[in-house]
């Protein structure tokens, strides 16, 4: 924390008094992600994540799930000789998240103005504005390959925009929102950022973030760490086990009286 030189005592006292007066925190959303930690073991096939929170009387809700952004190297398919579909080049796209899931009470274009969508990177349209694709010759080509990128990710269930999926339940004056997310097994184990926004009159009225950790555990974690940290041992052990398995099965069949 920075200390500002010459900061007078009256200002400090005023600030102290202001802190004692209860004012509604307009910029935070009370919400909870459950579970906060997903253990990925050998039988993992995705999970269910429940996101619940509080929302004001005339507010809408948007929930966004993303991970750390990075560069992705892809291959482009196109026609060669006007006839054959095959890889025709490479495409770099950055910065993009492995996962981009967007849930809302209604269509985001109906509840949030375009400037705010861009500021908070809410929706594919705003995502397209911040990513760079290389090589592309013009805006039309960028649009084409961005759309293909979204299709590629949606195919794996790790990108998606789902309007109308957040339920709002009123009990008296209080309103609560809830969404059950089918967490895709294709989402790689890592730390995810869950952002909840409340929207009023086309503007973001509140924002809070939570963390969802998806982590390999047990034997799966052991094997994965060995594959990367002790690659030679991993390779040799794998080969020996494969040979042993082949040999044992061969012996079993011989024992069964098949061979001679």
């Amino acid at each position: 924390m920075r200390i500002i030189k010459g900061f007078n005592i009256k200002a400090l006292l005023l600030a102290g008094c202001l802190m004692l007066i209860p004012v509604p925190d307009a910029f935070s959303v009370t919400f909870k992600v459950s579970p906060e930690h997903i253990a990925v073991d050998s039988l993992y096939h995705g999970s269910r994540v429940s996101i619940t929170g509080e929302v004001g009387a005339d507010e809408e809700v948007i929930v966004k799930v993303t991970s750390e952004e990075h560069k992705v190297d892809l291959r482009k398919k196109g026609k060669k000789m006007g006839l054959l579909w095959m890889n025709v080049g490479e495409l770099e796209i950055e910065p993009v998240s492995d996962v981009y899931l967007l849930f809302s009470t209604r269509d985001i274009n109906e509840i949030l103005n375009p400037e705010q969508q861009n500021s908070y990177v809410i929706g594919y349209g705003s995502l397209k504005k911040i990513v760079s694709l290389v090589p592309v010759s013009d805006e039309a080509e960028k649009e084409k390959w961005f759309d293909e990128f979204i299709k590629f990710k949606e195919n794996d269930n790790i990108y998606g925009v789902f309007p109308g999926t957040i339920d709002v339940i009123s009990s008296g004056e209080e309103k609560k929102f809830k969404i059950d997310v089918d967490w895709p097994y294709q989402a790689p184990p890592q730390e995810y950022k869950v952002s909840a926004y409340t929207v009023k009159n086309g503007l973001i009225s509140g924002e809070s973030n939570a963390t969802l950790i998806v982590e390999k555990t047990g034997a799966l974690r052991f094997l994965s760490e060995m594959a990367f940290n002790k690659a030679a041992v991993y390779g040799v052990v794998s080969i020996f086990i494969a040979i042993f398995a082949g040999f044992i099965v061969s012996m079993v069949f011989k024992g069964g009286g098949g061979g001679h």
Binding site: L74, R75, K77, G78, L83, W85, E148, K151
Partner: peptide, 14 residues
């Protein structure tokens, strides 16, 4: 056939 028919997704991981 794979070469002649347009694939549903035109991108793949490198």
């Amino acid at each position: 056939l794979d070469l002649l028919i347009e694939p549903s997704v035109l991108l793949s991981l490198k």
